[in-house]
Design a protein around this nucleic acid. Structure first.
Lengths: 169, 169
DNA sequence: TTAAATCGGATAAAAAATATCCGAATAAAG
DNA sequence: CTTTATTCGGATATTTTTTATCCGATTTAA
């Protein structure tokens, strides 16, 4: 059971976008450079966020990404689902219908008890992530960081952030 | 985020072993045949269960597997951890230390807030599985099954179950 | 109108999960 | 006691998923 590395990158990237002044954005390459990760793969994660409606993108010269809605309305589960998919981690293959004592399909209207137990556990996992917003994370990071570090970030953002046009998607 | 298919098989296999009379066991090939799955891969899962101390194995003629302790002392998390590993699904790669605004290692004594949030979610997942025992699952299955189906299982077990010697591991 | 720049989907490489095989070990029979 | 059949256990291929990369479609600005 592995969560893809892209989830980690996407959350960090979204948290950084939250620090942007209104109306400005960062291109995928800048996000990758900031976090010291391969640019094309970071770009792929950003595409997933845009497709899920978490970020908005602007194409063409001076394009880039920005958050599509306030950070307190974006949960860690939203980002995880966008990058890794919403599908269940435990996939019941109905092996209770196999073999010499296999059940008939008509006797399988109730979900398999084993699958139900794992579904409940995954629900607990999702709920735990769903109650934490990007705003929560950003707040904690700011609280923990030194003033010098915050200044350095602001300076970097001031240098790299581009004013974006208002076009969609 | 995927849970390996082997986990499903291992739980089903362990539940079946719970139905055995005391002192008897099933070989890996029989467990695979019962569930209609490839024998060698089922065997691999059983090896993982034995390594984790969940099952005991007997080698040689008339060998096989049995549960190593009562079913109410085996949780779904025990089995999941044995097959899929105990390691965290979210692997923090400390990208906060990368790039132009990267933190120094000495400023990273506190765990990354993002990693901490995912760790909490995984804890919720584990706890949810840890409170469900193999005995719970087996009880529910028996409650739901028709008398004929239970009889069929008993007959099959009577035919396939081997008396095991008392040797270790 | 032209040209530069960026996102988006399609395409390779690496890693992990899945499936399989063969040797070591045990027990029963000769 | 020796031999032989049988089983588990670890090492080995194959397939799938994840990770990483590239090139074309689209948009903006000059």
């Amino acid at each position: 059971m592995q969560i893809s590395k892209g989830v980690e990158w996407a959350v960090h990237a979204a948290a950084l976008l939250n620090g942007l002044p209104a109306g400005r954005g960062l291109k995928a390459e800048a996000l990758a450079r900031y976090h010291g990760v391969p640019a094309p793969y970071m770009a792929k994660q950003m595409q997933a966020l845009s497709k899920a409606g978490i970020t908005r993108s602007s194409r063409g010269a001076h394009g880039g990404y920005r958050l599509a809605r306030p950070a307190d309305q974006i949960s860690l589960w939203d980002i995880t689902a966008a990058v890794d998919g919403k599908g269940p981690a435990f996939r019941c293959t109905e092996i209770r219908q196999n073999g010499p004592c296999g059940l008939k399909p008509k006797d399988c209207k109730k979900a398999c008890q084993i699958a139900a137990a794992f579904a409940a556990a995954e629900r607990a996992f999702r709920e735990s992530l769903a109650v934490i917003s990007l705003a929560d994370i950003a707040g904690q990071v700011v609280d923990d960081a030194s003033p010098e570090h915050l200044t350095a970030i602001m300076q970097w953002l001031g240098k790299e952030a581009e004013p974006l046009s208002d076009s969609q998607s």
